[in-house]
Structure formats: structure tokens, C-alpha cells
Design a binder for these strands. Structure first.
Lengths: 162, 162
DNA sequence: GTCAGTGCAAACTTTTTGCAACTAC
DNA sequence: GTAGTTGCAAAAAGTTTGCACTGAC
């Protein structure tokens, strides 16, 4: 599905959601949805706020962003992540569930695709629980930090030998 | 391993960690470690703070709690979770990695053991990344909320039929 | 016309930071 | 003795809330 088509589809889904729950279809809400679906990866509130103002030329208050995100979460059009200091969000309609690989040293987050693992998690039998979605966070060291640490360790050994 | 034995072991590991990194072995640090290893499940800072003061009769400042938790995370004696509003922590030495099942409606968190899934995640091959640990959060509806929703839906249909 | 939704600012919560006092080494 | 730690309070960061105004219905 191309970007315009996807945006059109989620706009329809959101419209239906708003109708069903008796919420108003304000321009702010659709502008926020549009902006979110023009961001490919995850984002935090600050990023969304600046992006709306700068790129979309549509300024909304932070309060409205938080309100709207709540609706989008409920409508299953956005998922929330909690790595790092602040909440991260991500569009989720028509995007495959992926896993997040987080470097504990530099904080860098990368998306990981693993079809087998995805299937296995989805098929996990849970007692008295209806699974809706899940998040897998893999913590460790990225190659950059891993190399930096090895170098540091070598230098320390050298110093001791002197 | 019984509780006292476990506490003794982690105290030794922490001592070694502090020595290795040139940190001081203060009574506060060991009191915090002890308290954490007397809590079976996850906890937040507020809980730890009150518990230390009330049950352990050892008052430490919040700043010290945050500082010490950082060391314990680095020493791999504690893991951090981010479900809900505030950070949750959990002891992790000699405790099997487990998954968390979180009800999106009432916020209830339950621990899930699944050996097969645990193995599969640990064996996942990651490119240019050294895995240290991971967190799997399964979101959905607990049986209580699921039943409550069904009841609510039925009532709504009844009302419409009238 | 009405009331849900918005923007703004203030409030609140959680976490971090600066600094004086303390204490492990 | 000294430098790493602690406690306190203030600050920072992220999120929520109260209220007057606006605009979708």
C-alpha cells in the first residue's frame, strides 16, 4: 500500500472509530493522524509537536496531542513504547509487528524483523488472557559501543602494565 | 537457594562489583540491595522508599535510591521495566527471565513463565548486537476485564432493543 | 445553541542535579 | 586527610488538569 492510500485508509478507520464513540471529527485530530502516518519509525511527543508545527504547518497544543494519542491508542492505530526517558509512539496499522533492539550504553534503538519469533510469540498460549499486541525489547550493546568498550579495556590493561 | 543464602550471594557479587569499579561499600548500598532481594516481585521507587523506612528501619534518600539502582542495573543484579506511569524494577540474580502480561484496561501485571519462548528469544540471532537481556510485554485483556466488557456490551444491546 | 474539544498555563509526578555535610578508605 | 557518597532541596522533564474560549454537530 502506498503512503497516500495508507493515510486515506487510516483516516477512514479513525472516522469510523470517532463516529462509533460519539467523538467529534476535528481538523486537529486528522492532522495529527496524518503527521503520525508520515513518520516511518517511532517518535516522542516533542518530535511530533515540532514536526506538526514545522512541516505540517498545523500547530496543535501538547494537551491536544496527548488527548488524540489516547484515542489513537484505543483505536489501535498507534502503539506506545516505553524505552528511554520518555514514551515513544509508533503507527501500527498495516505495519508488521517488529522487535526493538536497544543499546544500553548509547540508547540507540533499532527495529528487528524476525518472522519466526513473531509467530512464536503470537502463538504462545496464555491462561485467562486475551492477547491484543506485544512488545519485545532486546537490550545489549550495539557494535559501536561494544568495540569502544573493548578498546577502553585494552587501554586500561596497557596503563597497568606500565 | 533459600532467601538468606541468596542475599548473601548477591551481597558478595555486589561487593566484587564495587571493588572492581572503585566504588565505596556504604551501608546504604547494602541495605538497599537487601531490601530489593526481600521483595519477590516488581516494585517502583516509592514502594522501595517506604519499605526501606518502614520495614527495614533504614531510611535513605530518594537520590541515594536512584544512584544505587543505577549501580545495581550495571551489576546485572536488578532489571528495569517501564510499564505503567513509573519505572518498575525487579531483582534478577538467580531468577528466571519471565514475561509480563499487562491488562490494558485495569493495568494489572502478571508474570508468565514459558520455557520454550524464553529459549527461542535467547537463541534469536541478532546482527551486530550483543544481547544482554530482554523484556517481553504481552498486552491485552485479563479475564476480569474481558468478562466485564462482554457484560457491558450485552447491556448496551438490551437497551437498544427496548 | 450546545457541549465536546482546544489552547494555555498551572499543577503534578518522577527523576536528576547542585551543594554542603559526612564517612569509607 | 580526601574524595566519593549522602541528604536535602531545587530544578528539570514529561504528563495531566482546570478553565475560558472555540467550533463541530
Amino acid at each position: 500500500m502506498d503512503s497516500q492510500n495508507l493515510k486515506e485508509t487510516v483516516r477512514q478507520i479513525f472516522t469510523e472509530y470517532l463516529n462509533l464513540h460519539g467523538h467529534r471529527k476535528t481538523p486537529e485530530r486528522f492532522a495529527i493522524l496524518d503527521t503520525i502516518y508520515s513518520i516511518d519509525s517511532h517518535f516522542d511527543m516533542e518530535t511530533l509537536y515540532t514536526r506538526m508545527a514545522e512541516e505540517e504547518k498545523f500547530r496543535v497544543s501538547r494537551a491536544t496531542l496527548y488527548n488524540t494519542i489516547l484515542l489513537l491508542l484505543d483505536a489501535h492505530l498507534v502503539v506506545k513504547h516505553q524505552f528511554g526517558n520518555c514514551s515513544q509512539y509508533e503507527r501500527c496499522y498495516c505495519s508488521r509487528t517488529h522487535h526493538h533492539q536497544i543499546c544500553t550504553q548509547c540508547g540507540k534503538v533499532e527495529e528487528v524483523q524476525d518472522d519466526l519469533l513473531r509467530e512464536q510469540i503470537a502463538q504462545t498460549k496464555l491462561k485467562r488472557f486475551v492477547l491484543s499486541h506485544y512488545s519485545l525489547y532486546l537490550y545489549g550493546l550495539c557494535s559501536k559501543c561494544s568495540r569502544a568498550n573493548k578498546r577502553k579495556l585494552k587501554d586500561q590493561i596497557k596503563k597497568k602494565e606500565k
